[in-house]
Design a binder for these strands. Structure first.
Lengths: 344, 344
DNA sequence: ACGTGTTACTAACTCGTGTTAATTATCGCG
DNA sequence: CGCGATAATTAACACGAGTTAGTAACACGT
């Protein structure tokens, strides 16, 4: 009921100065000279009244919403199970806090919902946006590009001029498979993380292929299956592999979560890991260290990617010069038990 | 470079009317009469120009930020691994979208950072907030209560008058343990989801105790261990239980994620699940259906909780009468393999 | 011709802040 | 004592919308 909203005029009255002076003091407008005692009086008045400027009014005049938008572009089901959403949010909030800004979160499930984030931009609710997930509506992207609205993409969007942040999926996958080869495996299958239209899936498959070729091993399409983000798909595809004519001694599963399903399938066949089949995953989901056997995998630096994306975006917003706009962060092979590389 | 921001004046000019008329048409101000052809002309002009109102200006005059804040109150590490964050976000976005609002996400890690969300309120950035996690700074809560700012709490905050949404943790835990008792177990241990200060942990432990007492079984403190959110703690505490003088035939682990650690520990001891030890979890994390053995657990309706919280909050914001303000949603026992209740 | 009502619209004010240009107090110095 | 320079402060406008109160145009009845 109080509704006693404190305005800058209240502060001004209490300090016995004008509203303008209050603004100067609180925003530390440099080229203005205010006597030290006035500064003190204003600060004290503001403190006592618990004054916090109205952000709408401030945004209106300064043309800065003081917040950025994080847009996840994918179907709802895949968002609920996206293990990295948390880490992205945490990383981004770090950057956002350091710059006194706010984080607005949104999701666009379907392409025809392009308005969701274009409206965000047009209504001036955000000063920049981070797009997470590689599939986006062309029209919305064009709008962003034309108005060169500060935008950073997490993931890779082939042949676009946007700033982006990603890992080198090809190299990472190659590393994973090379590890299996070094352990002596010759019959190595692959289950991707996702269907073909997803660029990350293609890249990881490419890395798999390169590793085989570099080692002089034959690439065979019937040792490849396409996962679909969830353990269920890993289970099904692993069953399919095991039903094939030639049983692999190792599998590169391009997603830890998919790998969990594959593990179930292998165990269900009465086979042991890594005894009968070795497994390498991808992502290093927090839980991968705690399943049995613990999963050898490629660490995807999700938080770091988010931080980098946030920093890039803030630079764009502040108009700082942007030279290298397509950033690739390094991955790391985490060796655990699922390949027999290390003991318990 | 264009920076050609479209304002309502542009629309007015193009339609040959005044700015006021544009506002009336676009906001469908009911008690105003505008001729149908004017309405059409204005709508068309707005469409052609791609006009979207500036939200800061609108918020300033209407006193509505058209967005709500979702605040997670816990250390960063626990946010990165909080499997429900996604589901909460998804549920809330659903409600938010249906009401043309936006979702602002924030995190308060430490109690002295109380300002983060009080500032959100004072600066009028949000029209209401949802607090997730039971531990909050008293001062900040008092501020919300005094100004009766629209607030909904996810979780339980003993003796507060806030609206809240939660599950009945006591009853749910009781159900889980009763299931074990019905299967014939007499020696049932418990690993909590968290340390004692967390009310949910207390409640689940209480449910465990009630089930034992109702069945005439003795409660013994040395069959109880306190987990700490992560698999690591489950692993350690399970080891500790197994090192004790009397080995339990079943364990109620009040968190699936903690249970994953416990499973590792059990397997490492060369024991089988459910053959040697039966296990019931709590939460029904998406992955619990895919580990082996798949986990019998209590389903926590995270998305539904979020939706309910969002709806409550919007009612509060719109000043609708609020009768039952402490909502408890039902849980469900999901029977899988970890208790031997069902076959593969 | 004059009220009375209704319809269709608009001028002018408001929200709370940042900022420019102008105004007043203060000081140094011949 | 006076005069310019400079320090300290403020009046007034802008941002882009929503909204109240008021006006102009027209019809109708007597």
């Amino acid at each position: 009921m109080p509704q006693k909203r404190v305005t800058s005029l209240d502060v001004a009255k209490r300090a016995g100065v004008s509203r303008t002076t209050v603004s100067f003091v609180l925003n530390k407008t440099s080229h203005q000279q205010i006597s030290p005692e006035t500064v003190l009086r204003v600060q004290q008045a503001a403190e006592e009244l618990g004054y916090v400027p109205d952000e709408s009014a401030r945004a209106l005049v300064s043309r800065r919403a003081q917040s950025i938008g994080l847009i996840f572009s994918r179907p709802t089901v895949r968002i609920s199970s996206d293990i990295f959403l948390n880490q992205v949010v945490v990383g981004l909030l770090d950057v956002v806090h350091a710059n006194q800004m706010r984080l607005l979160l949104d999701v666009v499930e379907d392409l025809d919902e392009k308005n969701t984030y274009v409206n965000l931009v047009k209504s001036r609710r955000v000063d920049g946006i981070i797009l997470n997930g590689p599939r986006f509506d062309e029209q919305a992207l064009d709008y962003l590009a034309e108005n060169d609205f500060p935008t950073v993409i997490m993931g890779s969007l082939p042949q676009s001029h946007f700033c982006s942040v990603d890992v080198d999926n090809v190299a990472a996958a190659r590393t994973a498979v090379e590890h299996l080869i070094h352990l002596g495996h010759r019959q190595i299958a692959c289950i991707t993380n996702a269907q073909a239209p997803f660029t990350a899936a293609i890249h990881r498959l490419t890395g798999y292929r390169q590793a085989l070729e570099n080692a002089g091993l034959p690439y065979s399409a019937d040792q490849v299956r396409f996962g679909n983000f969830d353990p269920q798909s890993g289970y099904t595809q692993m069953k399919s592999l095991l039903a094939g004519p030639v049983r692999p001694t190792a599998v590169f599963v391009a997603s830890d979560v998919v790998a969990y399903g594959a593990i179930s399938a292998i165990h269900e066949h009465g086979l042991s890991i890594p005894g009968d089949i070795a497994l390498v995953g991808f992502d290093d989901v927090p839980m991968s260290n705690f399943i049995s056997p613990s999963l050898t995998t490629i660490r995807l630096p999700a938080t770091e990617l988010a931080v980098k994306a946030g920093e890039l975006l803030l630079d764009l917003i502040q108009g700082k010069p942007q030279e290298p706009c397509q950033v690739l962060l390094p991955t790391e092979l985490i060796i655990r038990q699922s390949c027999g590389g290390k003991p318990s």
